[in-house]
Design a binder for these strands. Structure first.
Length: 229
DNA sequence: CCAATTTGACCATG
DNA sequence: CATGGTCAAATTGG
């Protein structure tokens, strides 16, 4: 009956409630694509890790469920000032390998291609690596790669967004195309962050390869016009 | 049957 | 005090 919640410490990031540019809080991803490289490795310097001390980085993606790791949803709460509820995920190996890695999902807009803001906290210490995607990347015949443009779902059904499970068990009827968008720097910097294909050529593992063929050129949330968040 | 998921309530923090 | 976050328990699906 112990609630050992003493582990609680750490705040994702400052509230981007502020209108205008909510980019200050958006930390750049670790450079890697799938949180394989955390910004900091050993944050625990003090004794009482405060929420503010927790290492966390934000990442915007269209496929928050496919980051190369398995997560277990442990809660969902609606946030004030948020149109969509916030989902809380934790590493499936948290109890198995003491993996403190956690991530929360927040839908930004209900566009057809909804954009999700994923805040990762802590890195995977479970040593469980990149979960191979047997369901998606399982066998990708080099033949059906061309012209593989699948959208999330027909635009006809507005408002009704389909949800899929990260478990990768049932992919539902609609074939979820293996989307793999890189994190987009919400900061409209002058630098055009080109979606350099993430083909890192991992000859070592090779199983980390993610499909990146169907890039339907997502609608840039930050064009030149300001944002009305 | 097991596991994962879901919802509510409680707690912690600011 | 309010909000956000997490845990616990219950339910559903496979």
């Amino acid at each position: 009956m112990k609630r050992e919640q003493s582990f609680e410490f750490g705040d994702p990031s400052a509230p981007q409630d502020a209108m205008g540019s909510a980019s200050e809080s958006s930390y750049s991803p670790p450079g890697a694509v799938f949180g394989l490289s955390p910004p900091e490795s050993s944050p625990r310097s003090g004794r009482h890790n405060r929420r503010r001390d927790r290492p966390s980085w934000v990442r915007l993606t269209y496929t928050p469920y496919f980051d190369g790791h398995l997560w277990r949803k442990y809660g969902q709460k609606k946030i004030k000032d948020a149109e969509y509820p916030r989902l809380y995920f934790r590493c499936s190996y948290r109890e198995d390998r003491q993996c403190l890695a956690s991530k929360l999902l927040q839908q930004k807009n209900g566009d057809d291609p909804p954009l999700y803001e994923v805040t990762y906290t802590y890195e995977h210490t479970c040593g469980a690596p990149p979960v191979s995607f047997p369901d998606i990347v399982a066998d990708q015949p080099p033949a059906a790669r061309e012209g593989l443009v699948l959208r999330f779902d027909s635009p006809g059904g507005h408002g009704g967004d389909a949800r899929m499970k990260q478990n990768g068990h049932c992919q539902q009827s609609t074939s979820r195309s293996p989307f793999m968008m890189l994190s987009f720097a919400s900061t409209n910097q002058t630098h055009d962050q080109q979606p350099a294909v993430f083909r890192s050529d991992l000859d070592a593992a090779g199983s980390s390869s993610f499909p990146t063929e169907g890039l339907p050129a997502p609608p840039p949330a930050n064009g030149e016009d300001g944002d009305m968040f």
